[in-house]
Amino acid sequence: MESKRYKRVRRAAGIASLLSVAVTVILGLWVTPPDVVQGQLVRLIYVHPPVAWVAYLAYGVTSIASILYLWKRTRNLRWDLLAVSSAEVGVIFTGLTLITGSIWGRPAWGVWWTWDARLTTTALLFVLYLGYLALRRVPADSHQRAVRSAIAGLIAFIDVPIVHQSVVWWRTLHQGATVLNPSLSPKIHGEMATTLLIGFISFTFVYIWMLMQRYQIADLEQRVLDVELEQLIKERRNEPGVGSSQIESTEDVDNADQPSKV
């Protein structure tokens, strides 16, 4: 099935995720000091930006995989499987970005939600990639679906730089970037900065593990389809009075996609 090396890397990523997230939580909840203005609320800063970063990262991977599929020289259905795997993980992280932001916003701003540019474009990001995933469920053969969703994935990605720059381009309630701001001068220091950095690293590990796990599922699903189709063809051949030419037209409607050679 999956290679030994793949398994080993995935396991390592899993262990690294568990350990580093534990460290982030301990530092974030107990070791770091409260903030002068925000008090305890500052603790949410160790999870919210890292989770948002992973969403960007995931959609970036989806885009690269999409380009690699669209480019004829590198075209391979595996890129399509990687793209969808990363997009799904990205949607989870975008959802968590919206939830943690809202939980922070209520006590800090006074509102759960407001229609400023950062929040609106982030919600749009979430919906765009939900659309990407929905589009994939529209029946099509695997090549057609791969092309279609690669294009959709690339269009959706346009929103990522807009989300990031929204706090610069428009007036927002949301604060500007703490680390990656236009002047590139971090506005957080000491153990608070260290914890934020560990947060970024730990959720990136979580992403790597999830991506590998999700990709393996996509791969297994493909194999199941292959086995099914093989079996179907065999059975059809054995049935008296059914020509093999009919196989394609009468194939199981659920599996309308031909697992093309990967």
Partner: peptide
């Protein structure tokens, strides 16, 4: 409705002041 516009600065509260922030 009042919404507080928080800055992107994070400053550790001085331990002596913690109780009264």
């Amino acid at each position: 409705q009042i919404m507080v516009k928080h800055s992107a600065n994070y400053v550790a509260a001085h331990p002596d002041r913690v109780a009264t922030v």
